[in-house]
Write a protein that binds this DNA or RNA. Structure first.
Lengths: 168, 168
DNA sequence: GCAATTTATATTGTGCACAATATATTTGTG
DNA sequence: CACAAATATATTGTGCACAATATAAATTGC
């Protein structure tokens, strides 16, 4: 057995005394919380046979698919996907190839500009959406966190991210 | 050039209408914020020639080192390190070997229990601490975020993490 | 005292992340 | 039109993360 980290039982003080103490570092809190969140999604991801970043890609493609259904023409290239998820092509290209192998997405060159690779969802990829939605709604009820707390935290994170982008 | 994600300019609504919309997912906010934070540390990490998880390991070892200096005897095995950082041995073992190669840490078997690998810091590893501290303090000033905002966000993240561990 | 179980770490394999670089296409400039 | 610069993606290489498994030492039950 690989030695598991076990339950998270760190002291999490909110004062922030020592600058270099591990628990006082926002970076570690973000890092630990992000991985814990991904772990919390594992039951769903196992059920859908997806990885977490693959699930994120599908969420974007579901949005694009809905936009196309509304008559819009979203930029559906790898670059647009990367800007949306803040991931680069070195991450996305192999990931998309695996998803293409599984029949979840299609990749083809844009006729107008042969440099861009257009990514679109398949019927098999569309079929995962209601299953994911059911999971997420069940999770919202099951977890011991209120909808307000989640919204507040998410909002603060995006504000913080915006400041990191401009000032950092 | 690898297509970079570019500046983070998502719409970050705080209402949370559509349940499956990407920007309404706390998981994505955490994931994006954590990676953005790691990016923000890159200048320091490049200067110290460390990776981000290696820096976290050093922070724990600095704490252990201070505890030893106070006459305490902290559990200094790989398992304790993993519980502290919520990482398992499959991640830590190769990482520690690389740090050992660079002369930053020492690894040896515990005489009392030959199963445990004791990890301790070297003088070269100690020498990085003041340099890191200087960087972190400079960062706190330079970033456009207040100390209070950072503390509040960090506190909320730990509370959230605790609930994920118990209820999720 | 010794087999069965538990505990602690290491190993193997897959899939991200991202830096550095390469390739190919398009666009601007003379 | 030729050709330099810009653009979009792909490739390569390193280092996490983590699941599944293997190995070895310690502990427990009898």
């Amino acid at each position: 057995m690989t030695s598991k980290p076990g339950p998270a039982t760190p002291a999490f003080p909110c004062d922030g005394g020592e600058p270099l103490a591990l628990d006082n570092q926002l970076c570690f809190a973000l890092y630990a919380a992000s991985r814990a969140m991904t772990r919390a999604y594992q039951p769903m991801l196992r059920d859908l046979a997806l990885t977490y970043p693959q699930y994120l890609v599908l969420m974007v493609l579901w949005e694009w698919d809905a936009a196309v259904a509304r008559g819009e023409s979203p930029d559906a290239g790898v670059g647009a996907l990367g800007r949306r998820l803040m991931l680069d092509s070195g991450t996305l290209t192999p990931l998309l190839k695996r998803m293409e192998q599984r029949g979840l997405v299609e990749r083809r060159r844009a006729p107008r500009d042969e440099r861009v690779t257009l990514v679109s969802i398949t019927e098999a990829g569309r079929a995962l959406r209601p299953r994911a939605q059911a999971w997420v709604e069940r999770q919202l009820e099951g977890a011991g966190v209120s909808r307000e707390e989640v919204d507040r935290l998410r909002c603060q994170l995006w504000q913080f991210l915006g400041k990191l982008g401009t000032a950092g």
